[in-house]
């Protein structure tokens, strides 16, 4: 039918446009990064010194901060989200689960600057006054917990990111669990599986690839989150073994320095940071897709 053909053409055009925008974005970012990348060479990615006044641009510490803070966030958020989602779909009565799901969705709608404020006024003081002293007293021999308890730093960023991605992760995990047929649960129950065994055999095992997808989406969000992180991470370009130490992420340094950048090379270097962030996200995304697909086929 003619109308169908036209409709399909419109869809094609729409898909083409978004592909075009993405490509244009990559090329543009790369183009404006070139002066800085030329000047710094590979040391742009490996160097850890960042001093715009001296035209020294090494993004290594930012890449490190981005990866570590986001992984820390996943480490905290994934177990909590999966457990919450399991309670919602497998354990709580429908009414209570509905109320909690609603609250979780509300959490997802809180603007990130509000999380940042909360991080500055509540989370960081709390970490400084109780959590970090506790950890450093007992586990100071672990480098992760060495150094003075500052409150702000990598750990604050990780925790705040965890709180920010937990609602999204929970909602995604809940969708994954809901999509598993009741018949799978009944198969386990009929074999004499307990509640927990049923959750393990029929729900979690079947949800594996869906959960990986949810985790990747959550990771993507944590990688690019800017506002709340810059408010609590301490904004210092350094690689420290300690989680208490201040750090910096790609997105946060961009937000901090964009307005003050005067030299062309500095601006170009900031573009290069954006390009790097784009690259990191894309690599993680594609890598995870590939890995999930391989897992599914074997």
């Amino acid at each position: 039918m003619k109308a169908d053909r036209i409709f399909i053409q419109i869809l094609r055009a729409a898909a083409g446009v978004s592909l075009l925008i993405l490509a244009a974005f990559f090329i543009q970012m790369f183009w404006s990064s070139l002066p800085a990348l030329r000047a710094a060479g590979m040391s742009f990615f490996s160097g850890t010194d960042w001093d715009p006044n001296q035209d020294v641009f090494g993004a290594g510490a930012f890449i490190y901060g981005t990866l570590v803070s986001s992984l820390l966030a996943l480490l905290i958020a994934v177990p909590i989200s999966v457990a919450t989602a399991l309670c919602l779909t497998e354990i709580f009565p429908a009414k209570i689960a509905g109320v909690i799901s609603f609250l979780v969705e509300m959490l997802a709608a809180i603007p990130s600057v509000v999380f940042g404020l909360w991080g500055v006024f509540v989370l960081s003081p709390l970490l400084r006054s109780s959590v970090q002293p506790f950890l450093s007293e007992r586990f100071s021999w672990i480098p992760l917990f060495s150094g003075p308890p500052l409150g702000i730093g990598m750990m604050s960023a990780g925790v705040i990111l965890a709180i920010m991605i937990t609602p999204t992760l929970t909602a995604l995990a809940r969708e994954v669990f809901l999509s598993i047929p009741t018949l799978q649960r009944e198969a386990a129950q009929a074999l004499g599986a307990t509640r927990w065994e049923t959750i393990w055999i029929a729900v979690l095992k079947n949800a594996k690839s869906g959960l990986w997808g949810a985790i990747i989406l959550g990771w993507g969000r944590a990688l690019g989150e800017t506002m709340a992180v810059t408010m609590v991470i301490g904004n210092r370009p350094q690689i420290s073994a300690s989680l208490f130490a201040p750090a910096q992420t790609l997105a946060a340094v961009l937000a901090n320095e964009y307005a003050e950048a005067t030299s062309d090379l500095h601006l170009s270097a900031l573009s290069a940071l954006g390009f790097t962030l784009l690259l990191v996200s894309t690599i993680i995304h594609l890598g995870a897709k590939f890995w999930i697909r391989r897992g599914r086929e074997s």
Partner: peptide, 11 residues
């Protein structure tokens, strides 16, 4: 118990 639709564990 055997159900109306086959339900082996896919994983």
């Amino acid at each position: 118990m055997v159900f109306q639709r086959p339900n082996p564990f896919p994983t």
